[in-house]
Each structure stands twice: as structure tokens, then as C-alpha cells.
Nucleic acid binder design. Structure first.
Lengths: 258, 258
DNA sequence: GAACGTTGTTCCGCATTGCGGAACCTAGCG
DNA sequence: CGCTAGGTTCCGCAATGCGGAACAACGTTC
């Protein structure tokens, strides 16, 4: 159990969690009476809590034995945890090495459920002019290189939702025309990388490449960003190659077969 | 949500589960205010429930952003679900084919936390003399072929605990002598299969073979059982081969490298 | 620096929600 | 049939969980 200052929390929720953990101590199904004895709680309390957990899919009842066991909803929720942990742990060393090699700032980015881009890891450049809190901050995908990569491999319907929601302008180079963005995303898919030059912020440019999981889905993007004065056309070509190489290394470690 | 008759369940547990599921709708971290809006509950209620979930490890807080996300305990719990589901789904077709081929009853068995054997899947023989509810019923491992297999590959200390707890007699052929059982388990390890002849019930014999996962651990056993009058010595040899073949097929599908 | 807005955290009085005991129901066994 | 075991339902009660409000901390703007 996590230690936490003496905040009052619902006892019934604590008890429900204790029930889930009791299942974690054995591979067998458990009955109401088993759990009642293990947790020293009355059968009716156990039953009431199990019923709530069952309705939520966190436990299920084996109809043959009437005993209970953990349910499939846990697998769905845990999958999200694993996706995050895998990405951070697998990608971490590659991102670090990349930041050392290119001497620019490297980010690992994902798309949120409401189609924003957030960074979930960051390795700053030694040349960092300004280091603001970019982890967890939401960005519009069309204005950042990693967002272009993530959009490029989304289902068409979802891209159209993003377009329909509007493309806010941040600089005079931001792409705000849906037709032009569609063209840009097609280019990204063809090339396997994206470039954004001063589209979010003046003086800031970046390149990005996709990370692909074992099922072939693009689940994240690696980007390299720096001040535009350093990122010349020649330099951008170099960084693209480095980003792509790192993206492939992470992808292979996630089980990508390409 | 599962539908269930109008039993009264703790609202606070339902709300806690709703919070967990809200995280399932996005890959981003969520704040107290986010969740308050999504679930139309007051911030203080959300905070109270999140604190309980955090104490249980089901959610965690990102210190950089103070937002919350699903926690690692879910992965641990879900692993147990996956183990069960993988076994049943992966092994199912093999067990079915095996039951058709050998025309005897085929079982898939695991060890419980208190060192009993339970069947988690069963394909009955067309010759079934008597079909009682064997799914989920606990058996002493020393008296059944699948139990011998599962014991044979346990750590030595755990085997000694089983022996120390006693070896009840079910028939006059049950092994009740610890020394003799140790010898039997050594034989199982050497041969890669187990035979039990009328040791649980007179007139019932069986053979079993291990199922090995991607880490090389024996996680289950496949057994073929039938009435002793049908399971002659020649027949047992045939069934051993079939069980071993099926066990290997399932093992390979679970990622076993052997 | 001050003011403001945002968001996570804490506190407290109250009423309704969750509780535990007991009864009920079902299945299996002798 | 009676008994046991174990999951399920019901009910009166008091304490638990609630929601509103205040608080603390941080970032932004002027």
C-alpha cells in the first residue's frame, strides 16, 4: 500500500481494493466465504463489494462453481499502463543516446484521447536556450513535427475530426488550411518522417519519426527540436536520419517486425 | 457494465470504478478537475476516491504535472487474468482435438495457491461413463497425474511443504509415503510425463504432460483420463505420447522456445 | 510586485449510504 | 428428511461518505 498523509478515504473503496488483491495471492477462484475469512469481513459485506466489482468487470463469477475470479476489464486497463511503461523504458536509452549524438532536445510524444500531442519523456540539449515545462503539456498536433507523424498514421475519419475541430494559428507559418495539411500528412506517410519549421513558435524547428509496436501500429513519435538558426536544411536532413534510426530501434524493441 | 438484478452496491465503489474507466478512454494523464468534469462529480469526491485508488496502487500521480494515471498494480492483477485466459484459449483447440483423437476425457489443470490441483478446462470422452462436476474442484496433487506433473517442477522447498502437510489416502494405490512420492516426482521429471493408476478413485487412471510458458516455467498440465479397464499398458503408452505432443504444441504457442 | 485564474488539497457538519446480523435459498450428502 | 456449506437477500441503524467552501501553490499578465 502507498503511504499517504492522513487523508480520509472511503473505507468501502479500500475494502474493494483489498478484495482485488486477495485474488492476487492465489491462482484459484475464491468464494464469498473464502474472502470473508481471508479479510475478516462479514459475508454480506464481501458479497456487496464483489457485486460492485463484478458490475464493473473487475471480477467475474465462474457459473459452474459460483466462485469469483479477476475479470477481463483489468486486462484492458493494464494494457494502457504497459503501453506507457514500455515506451518510456524501452525508448529512454535510445532517446538519451540520440540527445547526446545530435546535441539537440529529444522528445517522446503520444496522442491523447482528445487528439492533442503530449510529451511523455524529454532529453534536453546541452545548448538549451530556454527549458520550459513541456512534459505533459498539450499541443495541437498540426503545429508540431511529432503531431504530424502521429496524425499521418491515424484512421482517415479521425484525421477529419481533427481538421473539423479547426487548426489554430500560432505563427505565420502554422498550417491552418485543411487541404494543405492533408497534403503534408500524405508526404509524411510517404517519407516516413515529418518536419515542422517555426509552426508552433518562432525560432523553433523540429523533425520527427514514428515508433511502431508489434502490431504495426504507430504508438508514439520521437522528435528532435532546436532553434531554427541551428537547424539548417543540411542539418535537418541529418537529424531526420538520426530520428528515423532511433525510431526504428525502439520499434524493433517493441516487437515491430519491419 | 455488467447487468445484474437490483442488488444494492456501494456507490463509492461504483464511482471509484468509473474513475478507473475514465482513464481507459484516453492515453493522457488526467487531473482532478478533468475527472470532475468527465464524471460530473465534485472535485473533493474525485480527490477522495483517487486517494484511495492511489493507496492501493491502482492509480499513481505524476509528480511533475500532479495529474493522475493508472498504476502498476493493475498490471500485476491483469497478469493473473491473462495467464488463465491464455491457457484456456490457447490450449482449448488442442485439448478438443486431443479428446477427439484419443476418445478419452482431457483436462487442463493448474496448481492453486494452497497447493491443490484444479481443472480449468475439460473435454469429455464420448465413452463417458459418468460426468461429474470436476471443473474447479480441488484435488490433492499427489493422487492425480496432472498433480504429479505440476509438483515435479516445483521448487524443492514447496514440494517439501506439500509432503509435510500430509498425503491423504483415497484408494489402496494412493502414494502416501513421502519417500516414494519424491522418487515418483524424480521419475516424472526424467520422463517428462506422469501416470496415475487408480490413485484417486478405483477404476480411474490417467496420464499427464506439462505445459511450459515462454519463460520455461511449467504453468499447467494436460491430462488424459479414462476407466482403467480401457487404459491397458499399451494404451497408456499411446496416450502418453499424445499428451506430450499436445503439451508441446500448447507450450510453443505460449512462447516456449524448446 | 500585485492581482488573478487555475488546479490540486483539506476540512467540517450532515444525512443517507454502507454496514452487519440474520434469514433465505440451493445443492449435496448420509 | 435433516444437516451442512456456501452464495444471496433484507432491514434498521449509526457512522461513513458526501459536497461546498476554504486553502495552498503555481503560473501568467499587467
Amino acid at each position: 500500500m502507498n503511504e499517504r498523509r492522513s487523508a480520509s478515504v472511503p473505507r468501502s473503496v479500500e475494502r474493494a481494493i483489498a478484495i482485488l488483491k486477495a485474488f492476487g495471492e492465489t491462482t484459484a477462484d475464491l468464494g464469498v466465504t473464502d474472502l470473508s475469512q481471508r479479510l475478516d469481513l462479514p459475508k454480506s459485506t464481501i458479497h456487496r463489494l464483489l457485486t460492485a466489482l463484478e458490475r464493473g468487470g473487475l471480477v467475474e463469477q465462474n457459473p459452474a462453481t459460483e466462485k469469483y475470479r479477476l475479470g477481463i476489464e483489468l486486462v484492458r486497463l493494464a494494457g494502457l499502463v504497459l503501453t506507457r511503461i514500455d515506451l518510456q523504458q524501452v525508448a529512454g536509452p535510445h532517446l538519451y543516446a540520440l540527445a547526446q549524438a545530435c546535441e539537440e532536445t529529444v522528445n517522446l510524444s503520444i496522442l491523447t484521447g482528445d487528439d492533442k500531442v503530449i510529451n511523455i519523456a524529454r532529453f534536453p540539449s546541452p545548448h538549451m536556450v530556454r527549458n520550459v515545462g513541456w512534459i505533459g503539456r498539450e499541443m495541437f498536433p498540426h503545429s508540431v513535427s511529432s503531431g504530424k507523424v502521429l496524425l499521418a498514421y491515424l484512421p482517415k475519419e479521425r484525421v477529419e475530426c481533427v481538421l473539423a475541430a479547426g487548426l489554430p494559428r500560432f505563427t505565420n507559418r502554422t498550417i491552418t488550411d485543411p487541404v494543405r495539411l492533408r497534403g503534408e500528412l500524405a508526404r509524411v506517410r510517404q517519407q516516413g518522417y515529418a518536419v515542422a519549421q517555426e509552426e508552433l513558435e518562432e525560432g523553433l524547428s523540429a523533425v520527427a519519426a514514428p515508433i511502431v509496436n508489434h502490431e504495426g501500429h504507430v504508438v508514439a513519435a520521437i522528435s528532435i527540436s532546436g532553434p531554427s538558426f541551428r537547424l539548417t536544411e543540411e542539418r535537418l536532413i541529418q537529424l531526420v536520419e538520426m530520428a528515423r534510426r532511433a525510431g526504428k530501434a525502439v520499434s524493433r524493441q517493441l516487437g515491430w517486425a519491419g
